[in-house]
Design a protein around this nucleic acid. Sequence first.
RNA 1: GGAUAGGUGGGUGAGUUGGCUGAAACCACAUCCCUGCUAAGGAUGCGUACUGGUAACGGUACCGAGGGUUCGAAUCCCUCCCUGUCCGCCA
Length: 412
Amino acid sequence: MLDIKLIQNEFDSVCEKLRKKKVSEETIENLRLISLELKAQRAILEPLQAEQNASSKLFGVWAKEGKDINELKAKLSANKEKISTVSKQVKELEEKLSNLALSVPNLPDDDVPSGKDENDNIEIKKVLTPPIFDFTPKEHWEISENQIDFERGVKLSKSRFSVLKNKAAKLERALINYMLDFNAKRGFNEVCVPYIVNRETLTGTGQLPKFEDDLFKIEGEDLFLIPTAEVPVTNLFRDEIILENELPIMMTSYTACFRKEAGSAGRDTRGMIRQHQFDKVELVCITKPSESEKIFDKMVECASDLLSSLGLAHRHLMLCGGDLGFGAAKTIDLEVWFPGQNRYREISSISNTRDFQARRAKIRYKDGKKNKLVNTLNGSSLAVGRTMIAIMENYQKADGSFDVPEVLKSYM
RNA sequence: GGAUAGGUGGGUGAGUUGGCUGAAACCACAUCCCUGCUAAGGAUGCGUACUGGUAACGGUACCGAGGGUUCGAAUCCCUCCCUGUCCGCCA
């Protein structure tokens, strides 16, 4: 959620920044007007309430002293009517404002390039060089016949579900453990969290109210399957005030993730690039605003080094404004090389949401005497399924089998 | 799921015959004083959000959430959520 005061005081610059994210000026203007109207109505309501409070106190005193209270009572009753009318309006405005405010995306950082979509993202650097094969490399579903069972995944559930077997099943587990250990060495503390969360939690990180269609909902309950560990892990501190010396809080968590992929019909239908259920090891950090840039770099470095340690060639992309997610002020994607597809594909996405989630989730820290909003950051390190198929493709051999990176061997 | 007791500020915990309690007390925390050693004592301050004011200092809302009764509710009523305990069930 954006700071309403910022919208009131720096309207033009907010609009300018949100243009990068393809948000219309009307929306922001609307937000501004409603907030002003709300303020005006409150200014009417509060003196009425003050008067009511004061007179009611008098009422008690007079009644005790045996004075005549009929006149006072009549006055109070009339005032009560007025209050109820105005407060109804205030309540309506509040609801309007919060609905609207919760649906406006975060402002991009100043150094985020403008651009329309993924084609305008900027490559920052490449790490490692893609392997060269003396045969035509295959796609992962061609090398994995005994490893990934797509048909039975569909039988058990529906399309975009799969079953891992044999070496793939072991590799999946090895990767999760390896990643968690790797992150722990970089100072991230492991947490294990629920996969089913409530509406407040999803509102805190920004998935709700706008993106309910992307989530699997538990029937008959106001509960949802998590689309990423970012949701429960960040919300660990919802409605809390953190002591300054406890910051930064750096966490890593393995969870399964569940996404409806509502908007991606027809995309990546083959293979296990895009599944309804996938494993991911996530990094989540909570920091003081002054430190979040530094921590962000640390997270990118951690995920990138993790890929390097697995011998996987990859590149860093700075997302342009148009491709930035709802809550992100700045995002760097890591894309790994897939020889079979002959291209880089996203395997990690690291975002700084600044105080966007913190304001929604009321995560604050004590800065001396004052409570201030923290910054929250999240990033994958890494998407496990995609890492696995990247290994299959990059370590494939002419006979259709594949090797496993050296660092994983003790985990298998 | 059934029965029962509860949900109060950073923590513990008073307050439930409605009004002088936005909330005692204690702890924690901050500053200062005293003292002089790995301790103790004393003073003061200390909820959150919005809002008026240069400031001093005010106003409004919030005692799990949402409704209701009332001139007035942390205190009464209703619904929901959560926690403890006993029972049932279960990895």
